[in-house]
Design a protein around this nucleic acid. Sequence first.
DNA 1: TTGAAAGCGCTAACAG
DNA 2: CTGTTAGCGCTTTCAA
Lengths: 345, 345
Amino acid sequence: MFPTTDADGRPLLATLKDVARLAGVSVKTVSNVVNGYEFVKPDNRRRVEEALATTGYRPNIGARNLRRGRTGSLALVLPELSIPYFGEMAGLVLEAAGEHEWNVLIEQTLGTRDRERSTLAALGPHMIDAAIVSPEALHARDFDQLDPGIPVVMLGEHSVDVPIDHVGIDNVLAATVATSHLVELGRRRIAAIGAHPYRGTATQRLDGYRAALTAAGLPLRHEYIVQALNYHRRDGADAMAHLLSLPEPPDAVFCFNDLLAIGALRAAAEHGVSVPRDVAVVGFDNNEESAYSMPSLTTIAPDKAAIAHSAVDLIRRRININGGQNLAPEDVQTPFSLEIRESTR
Amino acid sequence: MFPTTDADGRPLLATLKDVARLAGVSVKTVSNVVNGYEFVKPDNRRRVEEALATTGYRPNIGARNLRRGRTGSLALVLPELSIPYFGEMAGLVLEAAGEHEWNVLIEQTLGTRDRERSTLAALGPHMIDAAIVSPEALHARDFDQLDPGIPVVMLGEHSVDVPIDHVGIDNVLAATVATSHLVELGRRRIAAIGAHPYRGTATQRLDGYRAALTAAGLPLRHEYIVQALNYHRRDGADAMAHLLSLPEPPDAVFCFNDLLAIGALRAAAEHGVSVPRDVAVVGFDNNEESAYSMPSLTTIAPDKAAIAHSAVDLIRRRININGGQNLAPEDVQTPFSLEIRESTR
DNA sequence: TTGAAAGCGCTAACAG
DNA sequence: CTGTTAGCGCTTTCAA
């Protein structure tokens, strides 16, 4: 009985030819059946299907892709899977890509431009059909690294001035919403944690923060804008500690991601400052943990599933339309909401 | 100049043959150079290297693998990337596999036996060279789904009685250490959250918990053992709420993972119960967030990097030694430590 | 030391 | 409707 093993005890994989021989037809007919081609003589179809079953035939995807000139894989390039936001996004991209029979090759760049560049370069045209990139430090010309025939969609970051599809939320607007929420709470000394010299989303969120303050007639105080070179919990704690040491500490803080905010919560507690009474805190990303922090965190909640699906759709569009060249780059804005929790109640 | 584009503007990828023609040698010679074969006439080598450079040649990995009969990919089968433990593990496995030029195909099972089974079945022998599986609900015979020629290593879970390589920490011992820590704190009413009808690690952790109580001469009280069908934060909160409603609530809780513990911390706070004063809490996994929860969480910290590396090493061993068949299954125990933080101080 | 050629498993003209 | 056959790009005998 099939599948069987050879002399060495290794499993013997049935090929199209094996199936054809067993069914007494040509490989073409078997291929037709396997690929759901309609016009196959019923009798042959039956015999082929039987042979398929007894051999336990499984197509060799590698060979098929070689022949078809595609790889069946997408690359997902992101800083680090251990960062909750990217872990959650990756899971959703996996699901979305799976619906179209794509495998996803995940590459971690650890957020350094060097690794982002070399990853793009290593993504040979033979490895992947397209790439979804969540850049952190990339410059425009770094995209030369990538084979021009490969469709790319960028997630989140959009400052890089390069004609590439992009999907993400309106960061400026979201930051305005977050900051305005603090204003409406009656807070007047509102700080921001997460300014960054060249990260595009940071710039946009800072713009939104500034816009909200200006709209409310509040002064922009430079000492309330704290830079964060990394966006980990520790950085948030450090920044918050700094803010609380100011002569006139803020009564509210808008953090550019949830990890910074979680760190800020801890620093506040360690300084004996009560959240939200003394200082209200808003985050950004809506990580799952933010609903369970103490206090739970008010945060901007991007529709991550929508981001994942839009990214995959953009890719499909480019792959289906000729080579995807000469198609104007699209910029998809996905929805977000403000999730109000204890840190601002 | 290469790489160039054809009439349609599509990039033209140089093949071995192109390079050979340009260098005026045979494909064999080019192949030799590309693969670092030593004995190539210096003059030819130079010409080939020049041609390689001007064409921007990149080997077609798919074709190479087809010919070599390998795929260059590992499967990593886990419940969900959005769960911090698995996000962190996945990142480490990616790194470890990358050191040996393996791509990693991540498959999410969402922890259901059905999806775990179908995932194993779909992992055709042509897609991957081996699989790293972190099972949650798998039964022994589900492994029949997988092609017998494919080496598998199981992570964490080891109850499934099947002759397969395994790597993980000693769950019984770790649970004993965690529980004994609570005993040493002077706690006498120690509860456990996370019992599960068929999850192997749950059984082992429960065993360790029982052993520690018995060793300390403490009674086993069945009302202190709370089942959790899922291991999310919500389940921990529910379980803790239940425990606190008992006539005689516990003065310590050992949670079978950090998410349960995080949920437990929140429920305690909501019930006005102070941690660790009224009830001490220990978790398991050492998720990054546990160092920043309020209070920070004492937890069992498995050496995750060691797990990832051991898993990849076990696979390499099986792939290098013949087909890996007839090699006794190995059980690698990786180190762990008890990370003591505020929740037990 | 290198060339010629076979063939990994599959798809897709092209005949018939 | 189906068989034959030519490759996809690469590695690898086998000879030379």
